[in-house]
Write a protein that binds this DNA or RNA. Structure first.
Length: 828
DNA sequence: GTAATAAATTTTTTT
DNA sequence: AATTTATTAC
């Protein structure tokens, strides 16, 4: 039992109180400072509402105070959802209805969990170390599994595999089955397994069709083999962290009953994003025998459901009242975040979706100085980055009313992570601070993963994946042949590879060289394992990296990134400091893939729309609103109308992140797979209301002229808002999809036609031309001939190798072979 | 077994 | 365009 003293308050927190004890009411007496106890007394006294309840609006207060029975809170963007959740927990604690450890609170991201802990701590006035069951589905799943691992056939030291490990493992299995790993990509099968697990399906439960669709109909066998392999490796993948607890609860009703008694209150954040497995998990824990109260509170917003591709079922939120009869449904519609214009734009956009529960956000704020949502156009993605950079610098100096803005209050939210790069490049040259949130992650770096593999293998000798990763890193002369031999040896005897290595060096199956190398490795690991219990883990970690020759490997590496990698390794050791043991650290890394950000730095945030959910910024930039990118073509192809609606919700999430200023951008040319493609404005732009949106001065370089055949969007016209809104531009866009969008994004059909070049009136008026223009002028004899030396503004010099009407095939010196319209090149 | 070179593949979103 | 993977030469 731990006792925590923070500041002046002396609050007892119970880590593990006697199993199902109910907190005594009235409050436990010790140290009646100004802490929980005192507040609880105040709470009991009806004449004075505790101060944490003050300032809530009536709906919020109802959501906080309705503690008995099921509650569904439909909370629109910016309506104080997190505040309700945290205050509700504080309320439960203050009124002594439960100990911290008797509250199960599930969030979607680790970030959200962290934030919630902080905010509860603020409300309750102490650290919340005593809330052991606040976390993501996955981290709570791990906690359950560590306690009961033997029930699902694992030992409590099991490892959690990341996607990379999983793919490598599956690849091995596919090869072991004698299948062609090219025809049956491991990555694809990993995706299928993930989908199945998200639906709560084990190998026996998957549909026959799914099974037939992979590996010559051996999908089911392969899935079963995979699960078997995980068991021998004593490992779990992400899906197992949900599936195993479900199976465990189903097979052991007594244990489930135990947790029923433990968890007096259950809270779930982002309920619209729960998938079937999470839903099953939750229902097992939340649905109680008849007569017992089901104190479950789910908070969500159907308009912000953006994880359908990960198996999320919006239906879960619609089904809540059926699952929990007598549930109270509370809508939060008062928005505290954004201006009227931003809310108006977002509302009008999301209204294009069908099948919504229908909330209308409103605000009292009405400031004539509020600016409308701005739509900007740029020629290409480089210019887009430049323009946004300028806008940011402008705001940094001072906005229209002379106010200076912090970079911390600005964010760029992109649809796909490849968009980030151009901004990074630009900001580096500008010397503008930026921060990539959720981008390439610290723990995914090569050197970090290598180091982690060493640590994993020391902590868990059965971790064959870790073994294979580092056995020849640094180079020890233990290549494919040796590893394969070890692999076979281990398989035959059903032992881990490290143990196999220990065995095999006693025999003379190996040639002397690899045998000696293997001997050294085995010796080292034996030594490190011996040190595990009695050496401080940071010291041991350093020792491992030193003695294994891993740090030397990078010290001897002359490449440019080597010093950075060494720095990262030092950072890794430093970050281990705050953990109790090496095992604890490994677990943290497996679940929390992001390293802490430097909060002190004033920097613009760059992130995907998905990772922006739940955040807010004064100024938000939304680049890349073009058909094919946003909405993403793949989403449209794979999920049709549902996909489009999810993309629209994503746009809604983007808009509603903004408090005061929102800038949307689209470009007419974007580079995809290294090829320049001309693009058309997103249909979502046409779904924004005129009253709240304003088109920023069209940059001259945006080719609005001479675009024969491409009148899809009102943003092609001089006055984009001139025509009626009843004819959404996207219908025309769809009609034209075969001409334009397909070719640009579908990637299956042939070549791309280059559409960049000079217009007649000089360098400033570049124009875009399309296929139609190309065809109409193709009858004229070309002014070029094969072998001509030509210059192109984007690709530089090259030789004409083929002529087809006015389309030239040119072998560029630097850019390779491209097809280009003859208007865009000139003879040198 | 290793290092250099050529070819293929990629980019939607994440616990 | 850039990164991962396969092939080839040493």
């Amino acid at each position: 039992m731990s006792r925590m003293t923070i500041g002046h308050d002396d609050i007892p927190f119970f880590d593990e109180e006697p199993e199902h004890a109910a907190p005594r009411r009235p409050a436990p007496a010790p140290g009646m400072g100004g802490g929980i106890a005192a507040r609880a007394m105040a709470a009991r006294d009806n004449s004075r509402r505790p101060d944490y309840l003050a300032g809530l609006n009536p709906e919020q207060a109802e959501a906080v105070e309705t503690l008995d029975g099921p509650v569904l809170v439909l909370a629109g963007a910016g309506t104080g959802k997190t505040r309700v959740l945290t205050t509700r927990i504080a309320h439960i604690l203050s009124t002594n209805r439960a100990f911290p450890s008797q509250i199960l609170a599930v969030t979607f991201t680790n970030k959200a969990a962290r934030e919630m802990k902080e905010r509860i701590a603020l409300l309750v006035g102490g650290a919340v170390e005593g809330m052991p069951w606040l976390g993501t589905f996955h981290s709570i799943g791990v906690k359950l599994l560590r306690r009961h691992s033997e029930l699902v056939g694992l030992s409590s030291s099991f490892t959690i595999l990341d996607t990379d490990d999983v793919v490598r493992l599956i690849k091995q299995l596919i090869q072991a089955e004698g299948l062609d790993d090219k025809r049956w990509p491991a990555k694809q099968f990993a995706g299928m397994i993930d989908t199945w697990k998200n639906k709560g399906l084990g190998p026996a439960d998957i549909p026959e069709g799914d099974s037939r669709a992979f590996a010559n109909g051996k999908g089911r066998e392969l899935y079963a083999a995979y699960q078997n392999r995980l068991k021998t490796l004593n490992a779990c993948d992400f899906g197992d962290l949900l599936l195993h607890p479900i199976n465990m609860f189903r097979q052991n009703p007594d244990i489930l009953k135990d947790y029923h008694q433990r968890f007096r209150y259950i809270l779930v954040d982002e309920y619209q994003d729960t998938n079937t497995a999470q839903y099953m998990w939750l229902r097992l824990l939340a649905q109680r025998p008849k007569g017992e109260l089901q104190n479950v509170c789910c908070v969500g917003d159907d308009d912000q459901s953006i994880y359908g591709w990960r198996g999320a079922e919006v239906d879960n939120i619609l089904r809540f009242e059926k699952d929990f009869p007598g549930a109270k449904v509370i809508k939060l519609e008062r928005n505290y975040r954004s201006t009227e214009h931003i809310l108006g734009a977002a509302a009008h956009l999301i209204a294009h979706n069908e099948g919504r529960l229908g909330k209308t956000l409103f605000t009292d704020r009405s400031d004539p100085n509020d600016i409308k949502v701005q739509v900007h156009a740029s020629w290409d993605s480089e210019e887009e980055a430049r323009a946004i950079g300028e806008e940011i610098e402008q705001l940094q100096r001072s906005d229209s009313s002379g106010v200076r803005h912090n970079l911390n209050d600005m964010a760029i939210l992109v649809r796909a992570s490849f968009q980030m790069r151009e901004f990074e490049d630009r900001f580096v040259t500008l010397g503008l601070n930026y921060r990539v949130v959720g981008g390439p992650r610290f723990y995914e770096r090569l050197e970090i993963r290598d180091a982690m593999a060493y640590f994993r293998l020391v902590c868990q000798p059965a971790d064959d994946l870790a073994f294979e990763r580092i056995i020849n890193t640094p180079k020890r002369g233990l290549g494919d042949t040796t590893v394969r031999a070890l692999h076979d040896y281990a398989r035959v005897r059903d032992i881990p590879m490290l143990a196999a290595a220990a065995d095999i060096i006693e025999t003379d199956e190996m040639k002397p060289k690899p045998r000696k190398a293997l001997f050294d490795v085995v010796q080292s690991f034996r030594r490190w394992q011996g040190l595990l219990e009695n050496t401080p883990h940071t010291e041991l970690a350093e020792q491992i990296l030193e003695e294994s020759g891993y740090t030397d490997m990078w010290k001897n590496d002359k490449s440019a990134e080597a010093p950075g990698r060494l720095e990262n390794l030092k950072e890794l050791i430093r970050s281990m400091d705050s953990f109790e043991s090496m095992r604890g650290f490994l677990e943290h890394v497996a679940l929390v893939m992001d390293a802490e950000q430097n909060e002190d730095l004033d920097a613009v945030s760059i992130m995907t729309l998905h990772s922006a959910k739940g955040l807010e910024f004064d100024t938000v930039f939304l680049p890349g609103w073009e058909e094919g990118l946003f909405p993403h073509q793949r989403s449209l192809d794979e999920s049709g109308r549902a996909g489009l609606e999810e993309e629209r919700r994503l746009a809604y999430v983007g808009l509603t992140r903004a408090k005061r200023r929102c800038h949307i951008w689209f470009v007419s040319n974007r580079r995809i797979h290294g090829l320049w493609q001309s693009t058309i404005p997103s249909r979502f732009l046409d779904e924004l209301p005129e009253t709240h949106v304003e088109v920023a001065e069209m940059e001259q370089s945006y080719g609005g002229y001479g675009r024969g055949g491409y009148g899809q969007s009102r943003f092609d016209k001089a006055d984009p808002f001139a025509n009626s809104y009843s004819t959404p531009g996207w219908k025309r866009a769809q009609a034209n999809k075969t001409d334009a969008t397909r070719d640009n994004w579908g990637s299956r059909s042939g070549h791309a036609v280059e559409r960049i070049g000079y217009g007649e009136s000089g360098p400033k008026t570049r124009t875009i031309d399309g296929e139609l223009v190309a065809k109409s002028t193709s009858t004229e004899p070309s002014r070029f001939s094969i072998g001509d030396r030509v210059f192109h503004i984007k690709f530089g010099n090259g030789n004409v190798s083929e002529i087809e009407g006015n389309k030239l095939t040119i072998d560029f010196d630097r850019a390779g072979q491209k097809r280009v319209l003859d208007g865009f090149v000139e003879r040198v």
